[in-house]
């Protein structure tokens, strides 16, 4: 089974947002793998392995990013986690938008013919939550977004996905090939089932850390450097950023000493009760 994981680098979400000349100031940014994409890599690995025995039963995880040369570092960290091979398609962050990314991924899917495309539900820089659904639409593939759990059927012909929706959890089955976008809880201890890892086995919470061995191995794994032209895509963004502002700050609040004072202020000042 071949799993394709598209992955984006994002500025470290823990760092403070700064703005310069009407755009986000990324000069001092440190970059990380988009957390949801890291979860997708983890999910792909869990789908292919016997978690209890710590062994892999074949299969292949291919990660792909569309980004500048520095993004190779985030791709390497996915390889260090256990992905097998990577493709980086060279593009400046500014020059690409969702439809451009989708066009490249569409071409890569045509070439790679993965059984499953597994990706983050959103990149936490733009918070767009678009690329997975758009790609599935373009490819005419079934989609299961916001996955909190996934179970690979014994015959490997479909996945049953627990989707976090507003009203609760929807269990949607899609045949493979198909596309799944993952939500936070996909990396909880028993969210991924593959009929290989014993059902009772519990993973640690969250994505795995790369081992030293994994980091060394990653240096030797194939990373193909490609261009947009290799996939017949020209960057012609249809989305242009016109400006960025910090949101208005909330007026400073106050600490109150005790609960009776709080309630009094909620009634009299805030008129909220």
């Amino acid at each position: 089974m071949k799993i394709l994981v598209p992955l984006k680098r994002v500025p470290d979400p823990e760092l403070k947002t700064k703005i310069k000349d009407g755009a986000i100031d990324l000069s001092g940014a440190s970059w990380v793998v988009n957390p949801f994409d890291e979860y997708a890599v983890e999910t792909a690995l869990r789908l292919l392995e016997n978690g209890d025995a710590g062994t892999r039963e074949g299969g292949e995880v291919v990660v792909v990013t569309i980004g500048p040369s520095e993004a190779a570092q985030q791709v390497r960290s996915a390889l260090a986690m256990g992905a097998d091979r990577a493709i980086r398609v060279d593009a400046e962050d500014k020059a690409i938008d969702a439809l451009t990314v989708v066009a490249v991924l569409q071409a890569i899917v045509a070439e790679e013919k993965p059984d499953l495309i597994l990706m983050g539900k959103q990149a936490v820089d733009g918070d767009a939550n678009q690329v997975g659904q758009m790609l599935a639409g373009k490819l005419g593939l079934p989609q299961a977004t916001f996955a909190a759990s996934i179970e690979l059927a014994e015959d490997k012909a479909s996945v049953l996905v627990g989707r976090e929706v507003d009203a609760g959890v929807e269990y949607k089955r899609i045949p493979l090939p198909g596309l799944v976008t993952v939500d936070l809880r996909i990396v909880s201890p028993t969210a991924v089932k593959n009929h290989v890892t014993p059902d009772a086995f519990a993973y640690g919470d969250g994505p795995r850390y790369a081992s030293l061995k994994g980091i060394m191995a990653a240096k030797k794994k194939p990373l193909a450097d490609k261009t947009l032209a290799d996939y017949g895509v020209t960057a012609s963004p249809v989305i242009a950023e016109k400006g960025v502002e910090l949101p208005p700050a909330r007026p400073p609040g106050q600490k109150v000493d005790d609960i009776p004072t709080l309630v009094q202020k909620l009634v009299e000042e805030a008129k909220a009760l």
Binding site: N129, Q130, G137, F146
Partner: peptide
């Protein structure tokens, strides 16, 4: 969650650029 699931897929079918949220 329905809007977020549906609209980008429809956008792809329409070659529409999309503004989320």
């Amino acid at each position: 969650t329905t809007g977020k699931d549906l609209i980008p897929r429809a956008a792809a079918l329409l070659d529409a650029g999309m503004a989320s949220d």
